[in-house]
Each structure stands twice: as structure tokens, then as C-alpha cells.
């Protein structure tokens, strides 16, 4: 045995004689259950809202129902389709090798960035649609829709702030993963 092996063994001994690890399994199992319940509630609520909106649109013949129908097919469905398409191949693979995981994380960040860009477009489309509707451009709504326009702009402004924060976060994470990938390749 040479000096270098002795040195490594000494480090390994020092390193391993530590305190017992904290017990984390109970909290992990509880967290997992909470996430699952939250996901189920989220899906159930989305399904309920979608069903209720469709029922309203199909069984009432008002202008609002027709506009909702147009909004649903013109903006909602394409947005949902894009979200599903954009997530293809991005399953969570924490059991992949480090290099494969970083490559996947980079793809996730780039797709996330694309989703944020698409959200700006959808937000602009929704605002344009609502402003046109409330200002009577379709000659179907009462022309005095100033409250509706004000509400649309207020909600859009809040959403825009949230979207910009998400944009910054995704860009930062992308830069971090690019740095890690460079180090892996070095």
C-alpha cells in the first residue's frame, strides 16, 4: 500500500465516522401523499370547470355563450395542445446518469422558455379578444364595456408580472444548467 492509498483511507475514515442521518422518510411519504392529493384536486377542479363551461356554452344561446365558445376553441384548445406538445419527452428522470439528467434539464429549461414566449402571445390574444368584445367590435355586446376593459387590463397586468418573473426564473435556471453542462464537458 502506498502513501496515496493511506491518505485516501485516512480521509475515508474521517469522513465516515459521522453522526447518524436525520430520519426523513416519514416526512417524504407525507409530502408525497400531499402532492398526490393536490394533483388529484387540481385535475378534478379543472375537469369540473371545463364541463360546466361546455354545458353552459352548449345549452344557452346567449351572446356571452357564443363568445365563450369562440374563446374556448380559438385560444383555450390551441393553448392546451401547445402545452401538451411542448412537454413531450420531458419526464422527470432523476435516476438517469448525471450527464443525461443535465441534458434533460437543459431541454426542460429551453421548452420552459418557449412556453413563456407562447404565454406572452396568448396573453396578447386574450387581451385583444376581450377589448374587442367589450368595445362592441363584434356588434353583439353592449358598447359601454369600459368596466370589462378595465378588468381585463388589470388582470392582464398582474399576469404579465407573474409571467415576467417566470421568464427570469427559467432564464436563470437555463444559465445555471449551461454552466453545469460546461463543467461536465470540461
Amino acid at each position: 500500500m502506498n502513501e496515496r492509498d493511506d491518505e485516501l483511507e485516512a480521509w475515508q475514515r474521517q469522513w465516515r465516522d459521522g453522526a447518524p442521518p436525520p430520519r426523513v422518510e416519514a416526512r417524504a411519504i407525507a409530502d408525497d401523499r400531499r402532492y398526490r392529493r393536490f394533483a388529484i384536486a387540481e385535475y378534478a377542479l379543472s375537469a369540473l370547470l371545463l364541463t360546466a363551461s361546455l354545458a353552459y356554452v352548449l345549452y344557452s344561446d346567449t351572446i356571452v355563450a357564443r363568445l365563450l365558445f369562440a374563446g374556448f376553441w380559438g385560444i383555450g384548445v390551441p393553448t392546451l395542445a401547445f402545452a401538451i406538445w411542448n412537454r413531450r419527452g420531458l419526464w422527470r428522470a432523476t435516476d438517469e446518469s448525471g450527464r443525461a439528467f443535465v441534458a434533460l434539464a437543459l431541454r426542460r429549461c429551453r421548452r420552459g422558455l418557449r412556453a413563456v414566449h407562447a404565454s406572452y402571445v396568448v396573453l396578447a390574444a386574450v387581451v385583444a379578444f376581450n377589448v374587442a368584445t367589450f368595445s362592441g367590435a363584434f356588434a353583439a355586446m353592449p358598447s359601454d364595456g369600459r368596466d370589462g376593459i378595465a378588468l381585463t387590463i388589470a388582470v392582464a397586468a398582474v399576469y404579465l408580472i407573474v409571467l415576467m418573473a417566470a421568464h427570469r426564473r427559467v432564464r436563470r435556471r437555463l444559465a445555471a444548467y449551461e454552466a453545469i453542462a460546461r463543467e461536465l464537458d470540461a
Partner: peptide, 24 residues
């Protein structure tokens, strides 16, 4: 398998930190 999961989770946490955390 276990060490892969652990190192990947650790990397993921690093990537979520402020940028200077990765300024090696």
C-alpha cells in the same frame, strides 16, 4: 441508482439557487 438520484437532486437544487452559487 440511489447515488444517481441523490446527485441529480443536488444538482437540481444548485441550479435553482441565485446565479453566484454556481460561480465556481
Amino acid at each position: 441508482f440511489v447515488y444517481r438520484v441523490a446527485t441529480n437532486v443536488a444538482i437540481d437544487r444548485l441550479a435553482r439557487r441565485p446565479p453566484d452559487a454556481l460561480d465556481l
